[in-house]
Nucleic acid binder design. Structure first.
Lengths: 146, 146
DNA sequence: TGCATGTTGACAACATATTGTCAATTGGGT
DNA sequence: ACCCAATTGACAATATGTTGTCAACATGCA
């Protein structure tokens, strides 16, 4: 019977491993569209409504500086455009350009197909249950520390 | 009822979020010992038996260059030492120094306590089941693509 | 109005990880 | 014994993220 410390280590390793696998999968899906996973995430955040760089960062849970650097790059690449923000002179609203939307649309079918294969192979009910348990684990980690 | 694409996105987000949480928890645990999570992982890999840099990389699932840079740094910091490898002239075996072992030992109690709180709050049976499902998911991802 | 406080983008320094290239080394097959 | 492929460490370039600092801007309160 494993002790608590070993179990904790196993869990952390399992999460790290899956994180790496999902990142690698994302890279494979995004690469044909000429974008990276980070670009995909930033573009995806402004698909539904314009946001400022700091707003995207809050939604993604990373620092605004990280988003800012990627946003600057995406604007330079012509995938993102900034429009004046009436609420903040120095913080423009960001929206995808037509090219930006096209890049996301090129990724969507592959992502959907991959999700479908994953869910079918893992079992839909099991898949939904796993997400639910992962979210409960997130809450637990927030509660107990370290 | 969510479609497959949405479910896949939810799962990826859940994994990314927990990865960030566990990384942050690791940083908090390792920081008092004056080391980082990456240093912890490399030192931990050679606690039981000496390994070459490339061997550590294989075990950790990252590139040997990443391990090499950290190993060089750990040697410079006096936490890791390299000894001649009879099997390979250019690839020395790496072992922790006394200071390196002390650093890990300073982290261990906090890590064990955190694991204990996590398991108690989440439920031991549920915790073990979650690890099992995560490992099954890892296998599934490897099998189905993308 | 005026000022303290918080938000925001710019910039710099650093840590971590990746890919690519190179030369030295190792080991297997002929 | 010899050659060729794989392994390994070194080095460079790049991507992504962090923290810290600064000045410009926004907002709420006296």
């Amino acid at each position: 019977m494993p002790n608590e410390s070993q179990l904790g280590g196993e869990f952390t390793l399992a999460i790290f491993k899956l994180n790496g696998q999902m990142l690698a999968a994302g890279e494979k899906l995004a690469e044909p569209a000429g974008i990276t996973v980070a670009w995909w995430q930033v573009l995806g955040a402004v698909l539904r409504q314009p946001l400022t760089a700091a707003g995207i960062a809050r939604q993604m849970g990373i620092t605004r500086q990280a988003v800012q650097r990627i946003a600057n790059r995406l604007i330079a690449e012509g995938l993102l455009q900034s429009s004046p923000n009436p609420a903040h002179k120095r913080s423009p609203l960001l929206t995808p350009t037509t090219d930006g939307r096209l890049a996301i649309e090129r990724i969507a079918p592959g992502q959907a197909a991959f999700s479908k294969r994953l869910i079918k192979s893992f079992g839909r009910a099991k898949f939904e249950a796993l997400i639910s348990e992962l979210e409960r684990m997130s809450t637990t980690v927030d509660e107990v520390g370290p």
